[in-house]
Each structure stands twice: as C-alpha cells, then as structure tokens.
C-alpha cells in the first residue's frame, strides 16, 4: 500500500510540474499509438461479439436478430452444460492445487537459503513454455502403460490409471498438467508476499513457544491474505478459460469428459459454423467467471472476518 501512496505522490508532483503551462495535447497522440490497435482489435471485436450473440450469423450471409434464442439453446445444450460443469470442476481442482502447492513451495524456498535460487528457477520454468509443450510432455508422462507417473505410482501399488483415455480420469489428467504449468506465477507472488512479512513477529512468536505450523496460521496467513485472494482470482479466471491444454491433450474427450467451455465455443464456431451461438456462449462464460470471482472474493472476506 506504501507503493500506492508513492505512486499518488509522484502523480500529483508530475501533474503540478507539467501542469504549470497548459494541456499537453501531445499526450493524446502518444496514447493513440496504443489506443488505436487496442480499440480496433481488442474492444471493437468484443462489442461486436456481444451483438453477434443475439443473431443467427453463420459465416455466409447477414446476421438476423433472434433475441435470446442462442442463450436459450445454450442452456438446453447437453454438450455446453457438460462443458460448464467441467470448467467448474477444473477450477475446483486446479485453483486449490496451485494455491496450496504454490504456498507450500514458497514457504519452503523462503526458509532455506542455499538452493532457493535453483528451486525458484525450476518451479517457474514451466510457466514460460507454450501449451503445446505442456500438452505433449504430459500426454507422454501420463501414458497409461509406459508413462512416468504410473510407473512411480506403481511403486505404491497404485494403478495403472488410464489418465487420458478414460472418461472418469481425463479431467483429472488435464488438471495435473495445468497445475504444473500454472504454479510458477502463484509461487512467485507468494514468495514476494512472504518476504514482506516482518521477521520480528516470528521471533516474538517462537519466544512465546509457538511452533512452525502455529506461526504460519497465526502470522503468515493473515499477512498474505490479499496475495492469496489475488492468486485465487487470477487462477479462477485463467482456469475457467482453459482451452489449449484440452485441445492438445484430449481434444475434449473421451466423450466430452474433458471439454471446456472455450473448447465447445471453438467447435461451434469453427467446426459447426454457428457464430451467433458461439458468441452467446462466450458471453455466458464471461458472466460465469465474473460471478465465481465475486463469490470467491465475498467468501474469502467472510472467512477473514470470522
């Protein structure tokens, strides 16, 4: 928060300084360099997409206004409903996975000095590679017969689990790969937050006889609560929009068991040529992401005040 004050102070001083003379019309030209592509390629398509959602547009021909028909159809479409349930399940698996593992790793790296640099590199690297790498590597790691994971699970008498070839497991298989991919960002944000927790609080607590676990619950968690909330929000947004892993690893299958909402949007638009319907589905997805995000904020706040 100190950062905000600094920023605000710098802002006022900059205004006071430049503002002595007049309005800087050049400012608009500078901003336009970014705003023009932004409006053309980011904003306009979204606005047009919302409109298309109310039409029966296919690539050929003109769009006809059909009101809420696409939305009605979506709510009765079993594929779309399954995909909706699937992204909620993805969020239920991936978000806690990233938060719990990311936080545990951050606590570990924050404590032990010698190899923490190496650990940070290892944990963050998956974050910088493309979905194609994640997808192909994990299809191989999760291979039922010869995969790495089943081999080591076999040591404990588990398996072999048909991770990507069974409708019961495919969503879990894709989630494991997604946690591996996404963990880095949450981990880095947690680590930065942990370094801001005052060290003397821990000293005082250990003098009072609080053990490591007690200290984490009494000191660390309350201090980094805003970061947890931010990581959860970012992760919900990106997980509910999951697409490329699904496309590469399972192509939505078997039998739609791992299909995500964007995957069904992709299929409606590209394969089935139903643009209006696809647009309506993406608006529904946006509303769902917004609702889940707001709900999560509310719940985390309640927990904090309880």
């Amino acid at each position: 928060m100190a950062n905000d004050e600094q920023t605000a102070a710098a802002e006022t001083s900059a205004v006071a300084f430049v503002g002595r003379s007049k309005i800087d019309w050049t400012g608009y030209a500078f901003v336009a360099a970014f705003a023009v592509p932004f409006l053309l390629f980011n904003v306009a398509p979204v606005l047009f997409g919302i409109y298309v959602g109310f039409t029966d547009w296919a690539i050929i021909g003109e769009p006809n206004w059909i009101g809420l028909d696409n939305y009605r159809e979506a709510l009765h479409d079993t594929w779309f409903k399954q995909a909706f349930v699937n992204v909620l399940l993805y969020a239920l698996l991936v978000v806690p996975g990233v938060v719990v593992l990311g936080l545990s790793f951050a606590l570990f790296v924050n404590r032990s000095w010698p190899l923490s640099g190496l650990a940070r590199t290892i944990l963050f690297t998956p974050n910088v590679v493309s979905a194609t790498v994640i997808g192909l590597v994990w299809v191989w790691v999760l291979d039922t017969q010869f995969g790495l994971l089943n081999h080591y699970l076999g040591w404990f008498g588990i398996g072999p689990i048909p991770w990507l070839t069974s409708a019961n497991w495919s969503l879990i298989g894709v989630s494991i790969a997604s946690i591996w991919w996404d963990l880095g960002l949450g981990f880095v944000l947690f680590l930065a937050a942990l370094q801001d927790v005052p060290k003397d609080l821990y000293e005082a607590a250990s003098i009072d006889g609080a053990g490591f676990i007690r200290q984490q619950f009494a000191i660390t968690l309350p201090h980094i609560r805003p970061t947890i909330s931010m990581v959860v929000t970012l992760q919900i947004i990106s997980t509910m929009r999951i697409f490329s892993q699904v496309y590469v690893m399972t192509n939505g299958g078997p039998a739609g068991s791992s299909a995500s909402v964007i995957f069904t949007i992709y299929q409606s638009a590209i394969v089935r040529n139903m643009l209006g319907y696809a647009s309506a589905c993406s608006v529904l997805l946006f509303l769902a992401v917004l609702a889940v995000t707001l709900l999560q904020r509310l719940v985390l706040r309640e927990v904090a005040h309880a």
Partner: peptide, 26 residues
C-alpha cells in the same frame, strides 16, 4: 497532463477483466 488520462488508464486495466474469447469469432 491532459483531460481523461486517468479514465483512459482505467479502461485499459478494466479490459483485462473481459475474456478476449468474446471478440475472437468476430
């Protein structure tokens, strides 16, 4: 210093909330 610069920045940031997928098809 020019009028609307705060608003412009807010719009840029707010756009991060909107999934680009809505615009992808159009």
């Amino acid at each position: 210093r020019f009028p609307g610069r705060k608003l412009i920045f807010m719009i840029f940031l707010a756009s991060l909330m909107i999934p680009p997928e809505i615009g992808v098809v159009p």
